[in-house]
Design a binder for these strands. Structure first.
Lengths: 189, 189
DNA sequence: AAGTTTTCTTGATTTGAATCAATTGCATTT
DNA sequence: AAATGCAATTGATTCAAATCAAGAAAACTT
């Protein structure tokens, strides 16, 4: 949590008052491995700052799970689309490793952003980053072939391969676990 | 423009005052075929309501263009990520058919949403819809095979095939024009 | 209207990833 | 430590889409 608050103070020039308001709203929660944080169909009523651990966000469509994203310590997790629109989430979010979370409930978030300019700015940036991320991901899925997507991920986020089960990584890359396994032997040995 | 204002009045219960504020801020502009509305690298400083015509938003990466989305009359176009963050746009937006636009500049948008609750609500919903749309698209690109993506698009947005050059549609679907052509003969004849 | 360019189609071939099928490895449980 | 179940690898085969290569058909230009 301190890391989070420090980032906010530095990045958004948040005041003491704002920081303590934020701190008071955050409740510590723990998840074991493979526990559900948000189930698709439910409305997302909370966001979490991940202090330790890793999580994944995925579509659990009838036939197969599709892994959309991974989250590690020092990032904020939640279904923004559902959280903002208060409509049922299309995605499920679960822990991968055991997690220490600092949870913010929607009412508190709404109060905080309504009353504190720097926190409003922070919230806007969370949304912007999500928009940028999905825009890039869309383009990558359309224009980069699977093998290069693998190479890019290896280069940009090597820890994904160390901490995330590979069949989830395969799903994230849009390939089968077999193909991922072959890429690994092809490029690592 | 009237269609747009009517929608806003009905959906967001905007008052007379709010509607006329919005109306005053909108400037009519016309685009010929294949004219640029926003070039990648530039900051997106305006949004447009499309009154007539069609547009496309795409990544113009070095090797190939990747078409991310199409827009038709009665929708709002712009790079939200760039518009909100005021960072250079990753995407380019051009007209496909000749367009009649009603353009809103950023300063005006910011003033309108700061001063009018119903317009703020509208802006939030524009962002939410974008988040939902990209979330779904991501999942579709990962979990639906190209042929089914084609069939879904045929079913959900048949006008795309009538009004958009097919090589753009192919790019949107993540396939080559040749493959799209084969799907068409396979399913239509 | 003739010519030029762009878009779309059709066919032959290649290629890369999925699928099918076992096997091995690893970790959790008892 | 043995047993169970899940995860990852490896090999053989199939299949779907890309690529390569012309042509045909529209759509602009002059």
């Amino acid at each position: 949590m301190n890391q989070f608050l420090f980032n906010i103070e530095r990045t958004f020039k948040a005041s003491e008052v704002e920081l303590s308001a934020l701190k008071n709203a955050m409740k510590e929660e723990h998840l074991k491995r493979n526990q559900v944080f948000l189930k698709s169909g439910q409305v997302c009523t909370k966001l979490a700052f991940i202090s330790e651990g890793s999580m994944r966000l995925f579509y659990d469509s009838p036939n197969k799970e599709v892994c959309n994203d991974f989250f590690f310590e020092n990032s904020i997790v939640g279904s923004l689309a559902s959280f903002l629109s208060q409509t049922p989430s299309l995605t499920t979010i679960t822990s991968i490793e055991p997690c220490r979370l600092f949870v913010l409930h929607r009412d508190d978030v709404m109060n905080l952003v309504a009353n504190h300019a720097s926190l409003r700015k922070m919230a806007d940036i969370v949304v912007q980053e999500q928009l940028l991320r999905t825009e890039k991901r869309e383009a990558a899925l359309l224009s980069v072939n699977p093998e290069d997507r693998f190479k890019n991920l290896m280069e940009e986020h090597p820890k994904v391969f160390k901490r995330i089960p590979l069949h989830y990584v395969a799903s994230y890359l849009g390939i089968t676990p077999e193909t991922l396994s072959r890429y690994r032997t092809k490029f690592l040995v």
